[in-house]
Amino acid sequence: MPTTNDELPESGRKITVTEAVRLTTNWRTYLDDSECDFQTKAFLIPIASIKNLLAINPDAEGVRAYIGLNDADDAMSGKLVLVPVVDGEDVIFLPGSNGDPDVENDSNVYDRSQNCPPDCSTPNELNP
């Protein structure tokens, strides 16, 4: 399994912990300064969602993550909507499906994410 950036494809390169801390600190500072009710710092994305997405979409070159809310009046009800991207385009319906937006078996859209807060890991450099 690759562990260094030289062993990874360009689009999958890691960043340093220092850069990750800088980025996440900037986000928290923005939230604090904006006085916005939306205070989500992070999302837990189950590996099963990623595996399922890749199993059904082996040609996907990426995943687009849209930010949504379970409740339009509750900024703490944040969710991520994950959509596979093929040839630069969102693939929201399964190949061969009827394309019915109300039928779960037609959907190629995933969300089993948990937002932080309230579901946060123990404090660390990224989550003080």
Rank of each mutant, 00 (worst) to 15 (best):
G68K: 01
Y66P: 07
L126I: 04
M76Y: 13
N127Q: 13
N70V: 00
T18E: 15
S34M: 06
D37F: 02
L80A: 05
I92L: 07
A55I: 00
L54N: 06
G88Q: 03
N57L: 05
C36L: 11
E125G: 06
G99H: 10
P9H: 01
D6Q: 09
S34V: 03
L126W: 07
A20K: 14
T3Q: 12
N127Y: 15
T3R: 09
L94N: 07
R13H: 13
P123G: 08
G12A: 11
G62L: 04
V85Q: 05
I56T: 11
I47F: 10
N98E: 15
R112E: 12
R64W: 05
T40N: 08
K41F: 01
M76W: 15
Y30Q: 02
D37E: 11
I45Y: 11
A65C: 14
V81G: 09
K14I: 09
P101H: 11
A75L: 03
V103N: 15
N108C: 01
M1V: 08
I56Q: 11
P117C: 02
T18V: 13
C36S: 14
A42C: 10
G68C: 04
T4R: 08
D33R: 12
Q114I: 09
V17G: 13
Y110L: 07
R64V: 00
R112M: 09
L8Q: 00
D33E: 05
G99V: 04
N26F: 04
V103Q: 12
T24H: 09
E35M: 10
V83E: 10
Y30H: 10
T25K: 07
A60G: 04
P2R: 03
V109F: 08
L54Q: 12
V86K: 01
D73M: 07
G78K: 01
T25Q: 12
K79Y: 10
P95C: 04
A55E: 06
S11N: 12
D74G: 00
F38V: 01
K41C: 03
P128V: 05
L94Y: 06
K51S: 08
D37T: 01
L94A: 09
P9S: 08
V17L: 15
I92A: 11
T25A: 12
A42L: 12
A60V: 01
R22E: 15
V17W: 14
N57I: 01
E19G: 00
D71H: 15
N105L: 11
L54E: 02
V109Y: 05
D111S: 15
D74F: 04
E19P: 02
E10S: 10
Y30S: 04
N57G: 02
L23G: 08
A42T: 04
V21H: 03
N124P: 02
K14V: 04
A42E: 08
A75M: 00
E89V: 10
D74C: 02
D90Q: 01
K14A: 11
S49V: 00
A42P: 06
N70S: 07
A20V: 15
G68T: 08
G12K: 07
G88E: 03
Y66S: 08
S113A: 11
P2D: 10
V81I: 13
P95D: 15
L8D: 06
N105T: 08
G12S: 14
S49M: 06
T18F: 14
K79T: 09
M76F: 08
D71G: 07
L94R: 13
L53P: 09
F43A: 14
